[in-house]
Design a protein around this nucleic acid. Structure first.
Lengths: 222, 222
DNA sequence: TGTACTCGATACGTTCCTGTATCGAGAGGA
DNA sequence: TCCTCTCGATACAGGAACGTATCGAGTACA
């Protein structure tokens, strides 16, 4: 076992190579978002990144491989951001925590498009599907401790952590499309937030030591 | 108003032409599901349908146009099915109605992939986005009367019809991915159903004339 | 049955993209 | 500073898909 190298088969990647890969991945995100993955070409990505196709084939073997690398990097970043925000902020209640979390995971048009296509892509390729399922699991493990803690502080005990986690992810995904489809509708955004609160409420019960039941959803703006 | 013709600018489509279009649309659905829209070619669709490219260009001007036509036809069919099922079945309670509805809108792998890509596609093209938003509206108008009626029979009054409708659609979309990502997990399916019931509960209140509050979610299987 | 016209098949030229093989600049180590 | 070897640029050949122009079978209608 070679001592310093972290991963077994990790070649010593030069700084130069790393920079090139970075720029290619960044360019790919933009191109995929604009053109769609299937309609994108190696040339488009290279042109956007300021390289020739030679650089591409020296770093990746196919667009598929690049697509996976790009998606993994970007979604890992988002997960880190989310983790950081949720760790720093000490929310006073579910509502505050929700706002912090929603701010950390903004509804991003371009990223949504890419993710939607990657999902479809992954559903066709079992290996990719497993990658995505693992990421989903990581998301749950990241957000749930904080969600549970925030609800606890609000006098509510989570009954089924896994179910709540999946529900939150599903609501996030499902409502994101709606917001993007009607970007100018404030009521869609409000209803999204309300739905989150309802779900938090439904999957938690008043703590024993709480004097009186404290519902998550206090007022209902309309 | 011309008596038999439904639409004003509808050319007299020959039966022959209609058949050809049908077969092309059917083939397109299959090809798009397998290859992805962006990766599909006119040739693939034609080969699958048993035509040459000449037939295609005689019926459509581009793959984009075919994609739209295919999506509209298929989603209109699904909406009709849903309407029929919901109209026929006289459910005794929310749970029964939910099962009927979920049976009418099965989680279909191939169709999900196509829809996901069409959504991404539509988000890039305002005209298509409007088409999709309109369909979404139609879905709401179809399911909501029945949902309201079923809940009413269960002694519950819907407080905000629009919000409930959007919530149901969001939950459907969001949980469908989860089911497809982990097709063998029974708990994911159960949690999906539970989430639906929770949402029905959250967006309705006990009717005045009801003797005692009747929550939608009676038992909780796990 | 005859005739006109629709509509799918065939053929063509063009454009775009792919993947590889080779070369040379320059980064990195001694 | 010199030397080595990595890595991106360049050039090449092949192939895939596009859109159009034209033709002829067979359909529809009188």
């Amino acid at each position: 076992m070679p001592p310093p190298e972290a991963r077994p088969n990790a070649r010593p990647v030069s700084a130069r190579r790393a920079r090139t890969r970075q720029r290619l991945l960044d360019a790919a995100l933009e191109v995929f978002a604009e053109e769609g993955f299937g309609r994108s070409t190696v040339e488009q990505v290279c042109e956007r990144a300021g390289f020739t196709r030679g650089a591409f084939y020296s770093n990746f073997t196919s667009l598929d491989e690049l697509f996976l690398a790009m998606w993994e990097r970007r979604s890992a970043h988002m997960l880190d951001d989310l983790r950081a925000v949720l760790a720093d902020v000490a929310p006073d209640g579910p509502r505050a925590a929700l706002h912090a979390a929603l701010a950390a995971v903004p509804v991003d048009d371009a990223w949504y498009r890419v993710t939607a296509e990657f999902t479809a892509h992954a559903l066709r390729h079992p290996a990719l599907r497993r990658v995505m399922a693992a990421r989903e699991q990581a998301i749950l493990e990241t957000i749930m401790p904080v969600v549970v803690a925030a609800l606890s502080r609000a006098g509510r005990r989570v009954t089924d952590e896994e179910a709540l986690g999946r529900a939150l992810v599903a609501v996030h995904d499902g409502t994101s499309v709606q917001v993007l489809m009607e970007p100018d509708s404030a009521s869609v955004r409000n209803q999204r937030e309300q739905l989150f609160l309802h779900v938090l409420d439904a999957y938690s019960a008043p703590s024993e030591h709480a004097a009186s039941p404290v519902p998550v959803t206090p007022e209902e703006p309309q």
